[in-house]
Deep mutational scan, measured.
Amino acid sequence: GSSGLPPGWQSYLSPQGRRYYVNTTTNETTWERPSSS
């Protein structure tokens, strides 16, 4: 899909309704949208 996220990243919603991002390669999580640069 065209999520616009860098490879390996997925976006999720927290129980509070906030969006966060997870790097499935490194298990890093961040509130900031990852850049593909």
Rank of each mutant, 00 (worst) to 15 (best):
T26W: 02
S37F: 11
W9P: 01
S11I: 09
S37V: 14
P6A: 05
L13T: 09
S3V: 12
Y21H: 00
P6R: 04
N27V: 01
E32A: 07
S14K: 01
S37Q: 13
S37A: 12
E28D: 05
S3A: 14
G17D: 03
G17I: 00
V22M: 06
G8S: 05
N27H: 12
R18A: 09
W9M: 01
R19I: 15
G8M: 06
R33P: 11
S3D: 14
R18V: 15
S37K: 10
P7S: 08
T30I: 09
W31R: 04
E28I: 07
T26V: 02
S36P: 12
G1Y: 09
R33E: 07
Y12A: 08
R33A: 08
Y21S: 00
P34Q: 01
S2D: 14
Q10N: 09
T24V: 11
T29G: 05
S11G: 05
V22D: 00
L13N: 04
S36T: 12
V22Y: 13
E28F: 08
E32Y: 10
Y12V: 08
N23L: 03
N23G: 00
G17S: 01
R18T: 15
N23A: 00
L13G: 02
Y12R: 07
T26I: 04
W9H: 01
S11K: 02
Q16R: 08
R33Q: 07
L13F: 08
T24K: 08
W31H: 06
R19Q: 08
E32M: 09
Y20M: 05
R33S: 06
G17Q: 03
T25E: 14
N23S: 04
G1I: 13
S3Q: 12
P6T: 04
S14V: 03
G1E: 13
G4K: 10
S14M: 03
P15D: 10
S14D: 15
Q16Y: 07
Q10H: 11
N23H: 06
T29P: 04
T26Y: 02
T25A: 14
Q16A: 13
S11Y: 05
G8W: 06
N27K: 12
S37L: 12
Y12W: 06
S36N: 13
Y21W: 11
V22L: 09
R33M: 10
T30E: 03
S36V: 13
P15I: 06
L5A: 04
N27D: 07
Q10G: 05
P34H: 01
Q16L: 09
V22K: 08
G4T: 11
W9K: 00
Q10V: 15
R33I: 10
L13D: 05
W31I: 05
E28R: 05
G1K: 04
T24D: 07
S35E: 11
G17V: 00
S3L: 14
P7D: 10
R19L: 15
L5M: 06
T24H: 11
P6G: 04
S35G: 14
R18S: 10
E32K: 11
N23T: 00
Q10D: 09
P15R: 06
S35Q: 12
T25D: 10
S14F: 01
S2E: 13
P34L: 02
Y21N: 00
S14N: 13
Y20P: 01
V22N: 01
Q16W: 08
S35H: 12
G8P: 09
T25S: 12
W9T: 01
N23F: 06
T29N: 05
W31D: 05
P34K: 01
S2M: 11
P15V: 07
G8H: 07
G8Y: 07
G8Q: 06
G1R: 02
Y21R: 00
N27Q: 11
Q10I: 15
G8K: 04
P15N: 07
Y21P: 00
N27I: 02
L13E: 06
G8N: 09
R19K: 09
Q10E: 14
G8E: 07
T24Y: 08
S35K: 10
Q16M: 08
G17R: 02
P6M: 05
E28S: 04
P34V: 02
S37H: 12
S3M: 14
Y12H: 09
G4P: 14
L13P: 02
E28K: 06
R19V: 15
G4H: 11
T24G: 06
Y21L: 00
S14P: 01
S11T: 13
S37E: 13
G1C: 09
E32L: 12
E32G: 04
S35R: 09
S36H: 13
P6Q: 04
S36R: 07
L5I: 06
E32N: 08
P6L: 07
R18L: 14
S35N: 12
Y20G: 03
V22Q: 05
P34F: 02
W9N: 01
S35V: 14
W31N: 05
N27M: 12
S11V: 12
T24N: 08
Y12L: 09
V22E: 02
S36A: 14
S35W: 10
G17F: 03
T24W: 10
G1A: 12
L5W: 04
P15W: 05
P6K: 04
S14L: 03
T25N: 11
T25W: 14
S14R: 01
T25R: 10
